[in-house]
Design a protein around this nucleic acid. Structure first.
Length: 275
DNA sequence: AACGGTCGCAACCGCACACGG
DNA sequence: GCCGTGTGCGGTTGCGACCGT
């Protein structure tokens, strides 16, 4: 028995969203909250499937989204979390308020992967990359690692599988990751050109901002999650929807309009109201 | 200016999971 | 326990922007 498609795709629009569609979805969610994603497009007057609406809201329209490039601090944290959690992007995203799993996944695939490879680390395992012709001899792999470990270039780590990572949040690979985080700038030789002052001022600002975000996340978890659930903003629409719906999270249209990315919507909605 | 290659992001697809009847 | 439905999640793709030739 095959699973039914999430929606009747006949006559439904696909591809990039237009500003008008964004307006419709935003207006609908502001006024009605989210009861059921499948009904959202019908009620909002959109020729999209509910899944598409959900993605658009989560990844782009949500007012609490944090726009802008990832800071070095955030990148470091992503690497560290990935070493522990693997490709569980939603879990990783839950540590970054305002960031979506999709955003983090994209950033990982386009930037961080390359960075790790430059450092000679396998992005999947966070282990040093072994030359291919050595693969025929398992012992040689160990030798390669152990020799580096003995030289103090790499910390000693034990390979673990994903299951173990899940069950043991604090574990061996973290040593390697910490080492990486502490030294990758040095290894890259790119960010130290400005002398021995460490990260430049821009980075300092970014780091402090990021730290604030993390603190905010922690406190918000304490405040808003008495039920012990994760404060994963990217996947917690149902939480938002409980008792008061999205409007509870978006205190008012005014607070929503304070969101940087909402400027264009504000303008356009203003014009719509006038006509 | 035209073309091709690369990159990064938004969006889609399909499976997995949770939940209620 | 089974089934249908809705949602979450991770992998993948499409496409526009950018860059070099």
């Amino acid at each position: 028995m095959g699973r039914q498609p999430c929606c009747d795709k006949v006559g439904l629009k696909r591809g990039p969203w237009t500003i008008e569609e964004d307006h419709k979805l935003m207006n609908f969610i502001l006024n009605n909250g989210i009861q059921c994603w499948r009904t959202v497009p019908k009620l909002a007057g959109l020729l999209r499937c509910g899944k598409s609406c959900r993605l658009r809201w989560i990844n782009y329209l949500r007012p609490d989204l944090k726009k802008g490039a990832f800071t070095e601090m955030e990148e470091n944290q992503i690497i560290q979390l990935h070493s522990r959690l693997g490709n569980r992007w939603s879990k990783i995203a839950s540590h970054f308020p305002g960031r979506t799993d999709n955003e983090i996944k994209n950033h990982w695939n386009t930037r961080i992967k390359k960075k790790l490879k430059q450092l000679g680390l396998d992005p999947t395992t966070h282990q040093p990359i072994i030359e291919e012709d050595h693969s025929k001899n398992g012992d040689e792999e160990d030798q390669t690692n152990s020799s580096k470990e003995e030289e103090g270039v790499l910390p000693k780590v034990k390979p673990i599988n994903a299951q173990e990572q899940q069950e043991q949040p604090e574990l061996k690979l973290e040593e390697a990751t910490d080492f990486l985080l502490n030294n990758y700038e040095l290894l890259l030789c790119g960010n130290l050109d400005e002398g021995d002052q460490g990260p430049n001022q821009e980075s300092d600002r970014s780091i402090s901002q990021s730290s604030n975000s993390i603190c905010m996340e922690d406190s918000s978890q304490n405040q808003s999650n008495s039920n012990g659930e994760s404060n994963c903003s990217s996947s917690s629409l149902q939480e938002h929807n409980n008792g008061g719906g999205v409007r509870r999270c978006i205190d008012s249209v005014d607070s929503m309009l304070s969101w940087d990315g909402f400027d264009f919507l504000e303008q356009d909605l203003f014009f719509e109201d006038r006509f």
